[in-house]
Write a protein that binds this DNA or RNA. Structure first.
Lengths: 145, 145
DNA sequence: TTCGAATTGGTTGTGTTCAATTAATTGTGT
DNA sequence: ACACAATTAATTGAACACAACCAATTCGAA
């Protein structure tokens, strides 16, 4: 049989987090050529996904949805604002609240982004049942974290 | 039925990459308090995992195993070298090749790290069959990327 | 042999990502 | 009304992460 010792738990091939981390990064790399075409980074892209759906959202709620804090979101929104895709507006009711609001130009980008998911699917070979299983397990983990 | 349109593919909840990215980050955050105790970052930790097993490895091969390039690995190895856990040595045969070699002090850290996987398991509630399924799917994806 | 391509690690620049702190504002208890 | 806690975004600092480029070295074909 294979010899094993108490240090086996520290082997890279026995980790669950490492493949999660590696696969995540590699897939994001595959997005790059497609996102370059529409001049968005991956972080800007997932931010736009929320804005395409919500039109307007508080920065705090954006952070909750994306698992990002203001230290990440502030520069991302600066970038999107400088492109003219988003404007920020402070709430009148509560001046602490900052809203990100998508512009017409920002909505227009969705037309150019709509083909990206299909293009990316072509880069990743994964049987549908496995993709579904992966999706379900990851969402269960997200809910528990 | 639910109303849906061609933009549904751009919704955050229909993505496979996003939960991968989010769960990966959240788990790495859970490592932080345990890694702080032994004064390692996550990137240094996975680098040490390879070195604990291999003792000595070319920087190029380290990058292949960890899915990292020299732009990331060079500062990580600088940090580990300044802690005294690693030394670097150029190959005599081919002076382009750089080897990272673990020190006695580096090997000694393994004793303090050996409890971390179990501690982290306690932070993540995932049934064993799902963990196994996730492991298998991710490794299949790593092989295909 | 010699010149050009390929390999390897380092460097630089941009963009995250998070922890910790700060400033402004609002809520709460007395 | 007033002190104090809580909330929200922004800022700062450290560590990634990758693309693009560079210097040194080795390889390989004519």
């Amino acid at each position: 049989m294979s010899n094993n010792d108490k240090y086996d738990v520290l082997k890279l091939e026995n980790q669950l987090c490492f493949p999660l981390y590696a696969v995540s990064k590699e897939i994001i790399k595959k997005y790059k050529p497609f996102l370059d075409e529409i001049n968005l980074t991956y972080t800007q892209y997932i931010t736009m996904m929320v804005l395409w759906a919500e039109k307007e959202i508080m920065v705090k709620d954006l952070g909750t949805k994306l698992f990002l804090d203001s230290g990440t979101l502030t520069p991302v929104l600066n970038g999107l604002e400088s492109k003219g895709y988003v404007v920020r507006r402070r709430s009148e009711k509560d001046k602490r609240d900052m809203y990100a609001v998508i512009t017409e130009e920002g909505m227009a980008v969705r037309e150019k982004a709509v083909d990206i998911p299909a293009k990316l699917g072509g880069c990743i070979s994964l049987e549908p049942e496995k993709a579904m299983m992966l999706y379900q397990i990851l969402h269960e983990m997200m809910d528990n974290l």
